[in-house]
Design a binder for these strands. Structure first.
Length: 411
RNA sequence: GCGGGUGUCGCCAAGUGGUUAAGGCCUCGGAUUGUGGUUCCGAUAUUCGUGAGUUCGAACCUCAUCACCCGCCCCA
């Protein structure tokens, strides 16, 4: 009663577990069909992996990390998994394999934030990462897989937004042009935006402050932003991506204000949003990160990937029911009930008996709550070597042999 | 880090200053010593998140505190 789960964490209860299996099974099926292999990395890593990988101008690294010191070593509970997967990619020399190298993962992530709807301190992500392919078909495949996965879960009314941030070459120019455009009304913007102006001007586009957005409109920032040209290579990449998406029949919206909060993205970025999530409306976020492998000490390796919040997915799909067991043994002869229970379990069925040997009506009542079939095993049944089986859904009751009983449960 | 809201049984709740704190669901028992999911009866909160104060009297008023939820920021 007094010790509770820590703030921002949740127990996943038996009544919810089928929903999680549904998501995990769909992920495995969709990703492995595209030859992505599952990888499981530690939930804590050296702190510097995230400082270097995710970027020390990001909120995630600045104020949201669960960091602890053990034996003079600074460790951090992973706030996301791309850095960890890249680390594993390098540590196990996957860059020596013929590209592409494709991974998918699922698991808990940790961010120290104030919890709210759709946001926890421990939450779960599924994600994919694809290494070694520069061509936009890789970006398109990742986005396509996200959409396919969501469709598999019955989610069809989501909005895919895409944008291109350019490469380091044209990004600098982009930043300069953006700063030049914003400078005239910088004083009118919120404190956050003023801070972002020098540190990370792209993030200003992400601001949700009403006053800021009013000024963006007044000074026609959208037009300015869309008139800023990517370099020829990046522009070509972006055009190809859109072409691939068209070929794959993936509907998308271009959002020139879409900027992701992690430093490692280059060229393609995208998000998938839902209107049914409240204020934390992104289910999926990702993009290309051509510089990250090199930043973490590996050879130059282009890469793309994304992650989805599993709790957010969960809140979008209808809850499935708790599954029932196959058989409940109703009997006042406990040794016989135990024997039959184990015999059925050995055949691969789920079965239970009444541990308290309560009266018949009570046992049947229990059976109807947790099982598909009640096997009635009374004096007459035991003496004459048969079973009375009651289908608890349609109330049909029949006498049968053990083999017939097994046959019945298989259907 | 900053704003707003809510705490009455395992769950959903009524009560908003006057002796024993409605009701429903779940659970358990009985009606029904071999037939459930329908019905009927019964049981289950010395106490209203916690602590202090006001009052003859507090779940209800005041203050403090804790917990949770929602929003900002940020992200999945």
């Amino acid at each position: 009663m007094s010790i509770k789960a820590p703030k921002g964490t949740k127990d996943i209860l038996p009544s919810e577990i089928n929903d999680w299996y549904k998501i995990e099974n769909a992920a495995k099926e969709v990703f492995e069909k595209a030859n992505f292999k599952e990888i499981r990395t530690p939930i804590f890593e050296d702190t510097c992996l995230f400082e270097r990988g995710v970027g020390d101008t990001t909120d995630i690294v600045n104020k949201e990390m669960y960091t602890f010191i053990k034996s003079d070593r600074s460790l951090t509970l992973r706030p996301e998994n791309t850095a960890g997967v890249v680390r594993a990619y390098l540590e196990h020399n996957f860059y020596r394999e013929s590209p592409p190298v494709k991974f998918w993962y699922k698991g808990p992530m940790f961010r120290y934030e104030r919890p709210q709807a759709g946001r926890q301190r421990q939450f779960h992500q599924v994600g994919i990462e694809m290494f070694g392919i520069q061509d936009a078909s890789a970006d398109a495949e990742c986005i396509m897989l996200a959409v396919e996965f969501l469709n598999k879960l019955g989610l069809n009314d989501l909005i895919v937004e895409i944008n291109s941030l350019g490469c380091p070459k044209c990004r600098q120019e982009y930043k300069d042009r953006l700063k030049k455009a914003i400078a005239p009304f910088l004083d009118g913007l919120c404190e956050d935006c003023k801070n972002r102006f020098e540190k990370n001007p792209l993030r200003i586009l992400d601001c949700k402050n009403e006053e800021c957005n009013r000024l963006f409109e007044k000074y026609n920032l959208k037009n300015t932003v869309s008139s800023i040209k990517l370099c020829a290579e990046c522009d070509d990449h972006y055009k190809k991506l859109k072409k691939y998406l068209d070929i794959l029949n993936v509907k998308y919206e271009e959002n020139t204000f879409l900027v992701r909060g992690l430093d490692y993205y280059t060229k393609t970025v995208f998000e998938i949003k839902s209107n049914n999530l409240g204020s934390q409306n992104a289910v999926c976020g990702g993009g290309r990160y051509d510089g990250l492998v090199e930043t973490l000490g590996g050879p130059h390796t282009p890469a793309v990937g994304w992650a989805m919040g599993m709790e957010r997915l969960n809140s979008l799909i209808p809850n499935s029911e708790t599954s029932k067991i196959d058989f409940f043994i109703v009997s006042d002869n406990q040794p016989e009930a135990v024997k039959l229970t184990y015999k059925l379990r050995n055949k691969g069925f789920s079965a239970e008996f009444d541990y308290n040997t309560r009266k018949f009506a009570k046992q049947l009542e229990k059976a109807s709550k947790i099982a598909r079939f009640a096997v009635i095993l009374g004096e007459d049944e035991i003496n004459n070597n048969y079973f009375t089986v009651k289908n608890l859904i349609d109330s049909q009751q029949t006498k049968m042999s053990f083999d017939e009983l097994c046959e019945l449960a298989k259907s």
